[in-house]
Design a protein around this nucleic acid. Sequence first.
DNA 1: CTCACGATCAGCT
DNA 2: GCTGATCGTGAGG
Length: 247
Amino acid sequence: VSGALRPLPRAFFERDALVVARELLGRLLVRRAGDGLLVARIVEVEAYGGLGCDPSAHSFRGETPRCRVMFGPAAHAYVYSTHQGRCCLNVSAAGDARGQAVLLRAAEPLLGEEAMRAARLARLPAGPTRERLLRGGASHELLSGPARLCAALGIDRALNGIDLCAPRGPLWLADAEPAARVAWTPRVGLNPKSASFAWCWRAVARGSRAVSAPRGLHAASAQPSPRRVPRRAPGRAPRGAQRTLRE
DNA sequence: CTCACGATCAGCT
DNA sequence: GCTGATCGTGAGG
């Protein structure tokens, strides 16, 4: 981690959500925590296409109190709550009231890993996952999921609506080398028979161990014109499983 | 690694 | 009421 960690300019986010998603891979998420900073490298995102265009976007049917931020200016935090009091963080995109946003799904800890671990542990019940994190291993699991990422960085709905370009704000995105290799996949956890399964809205940085595991149905039947690509991490043996990926 | 299951919550129709 | 932009467990490969 080097450089000034200044917020990316609003113009970065005033583009189509798919472009913003791609550009965000490899960039830094920075959280002010007390005296210090927590910094993580973004490795998995999902674009949400917005009003009338993306059936699984909260904004698909128009503005509601919950998704209001998606219709506002770009580069604002849309934090919504999901099961069990968990939260997910999005960044509003486009800024032209199309209702677009990008969900931050996974990241790698770069600075303040122990504080992130402590924040995760504070919410974890006794069990094998708690034991893993207590033993200091599994750092790739710390931020590997949208709600895990929020828990580790202390992001909750108190941050909903904040401007992520504010100079001394609690949360922002900073420049870094963009991810070199990117793969697009369908969204996690939706039905392969649904029409929207053909769309690849999810982007991951290839080779990162912190990418959240596929849940629910497998991506192997993605359309259109899927290409089967063996997934491998640098320096590791190829894994047995194959996933359908589109460049 | 994968899958199936269920906890128990806000938002919406 | 019903439905998830989820996560952790536990069993199986």
